[in-house]
């Protein structure tokens, strides 16, 4: 409650003192709560500390195993890794996602951006917005140069036949999702694409096919000319009707 103002002169009015006290108390109570909440966050972070050791321990383990030296350290590392991985208690499972959020997505994500950004700048790849975009795409999509080559070597009205993703192609990460038409179309638009085997589904598109994308040696059967086996590259983009310069047909 606010007090009446003090009558004596020269002293601070009681209301001001009280207000200051209550303001001080207000801030103190707030800070007490901040400390409590801060401690909770700190405990959660400490609980996840072990998770953060894992990548470093794993790297050291594999490096040592490759060298085949220091068996004692290797055993120590193995035991420590197993100890962390075997900690599947409810609280660990409940809280380790927050380690991923803070340390992997936020902190490491930001650091990676800064590192890559500096790297691209040092190579002069950020001179235009588009060159920077391309450099980033190359960083993220392994097949980007191969896909760019398709765009650079075909006319805009090209229709490309593409082998379907069988167990070999779709399990090889070097192809990304190149065998999925919806994914491939992102990179080659306005060129069109169609999976080999879907010609009956899209007969008009199949009729317009102008190129065949060869993936892991698949697709040669769709060419209207024969490429000698010894001249067959595993991955290529070939015109469907006539061989490109450099390929000697029988």
């Amino acid at each position: 409650m606010a007090k009446q103002p003090a009558k004596s002169s020269g002293k601070k009015p009681a209301t001001t003192a009280s207000a200051e006290n209550s303001s001080f108390g207000y801030v103190l109570r707030n800070l007490a709560l901040v400390v409590v909440f801060g401690l909770v966050l700190l405990i959660v972070d400490q609980k996840n500390k072990k998770q953060r050791e894992l990548p470093e321990l794993t790297n050291e383990f594999y490096a040592l195993r490759q060298q085949g030296t220091n068996q004692q350290r290797l055993i120590e590392l193995y035991n420590r890794i197993m100890e962390i991985q075997n900690d599947t208690s409810f609280t660990t499972r409940l809280l380790r996602g927050y380690n991923f959020v803070v340390h992997d997505v936020a902190i490491a994500g930001k650091e990676t951006v800064e590192k890559v950004s500096a790297e691209l700048h040092s190579k002069g790849l950020d001179s235009t917005a588009y060159s920077l975009y391309e450099a980033k795409m190359r960083y993220k999509v392994g097949t980007y140069d191969f896909l760019k080559n398709i765009v650079n070597t075909t006319p805009e009205n090209a229709v490309i036949l593409v082998p379907k993703g069988d167990s070999v192609i779709s399990n090889n990460s070097k192809y990304n999702f190149i065998y999925e038409m919806e994914w491939l179309e992102f990179f080659i638009y306005p060129r069109l694409c169609i999976n080999i085997g879907d010609e009956e589904k899209y007969p008009d598109l199949a009729k317009r096919a102008s190129h065949v994308l060869i993936l892991d040696g698949r697709g040669y059967e769709k060419l209207k000319y024969n490429v000698p086996v010894e001249q067959r590259p595993a991955d290529a983009l070939l015109p469907i009707n006539e061989p490109p310069a450099g390929i000697q047909t029988p």
Binding site: V105, A106, I107, G109, K110, T112, V113, V116, S117, Y133, K136, M137, K140, V141
Partner: peptide
Amino acid sequence: AVSVKCLFWPAT
């Protein structure tokens, strides 16, 4: 931090 990451990388 997450926006820096989001705005830097293209959709992949």
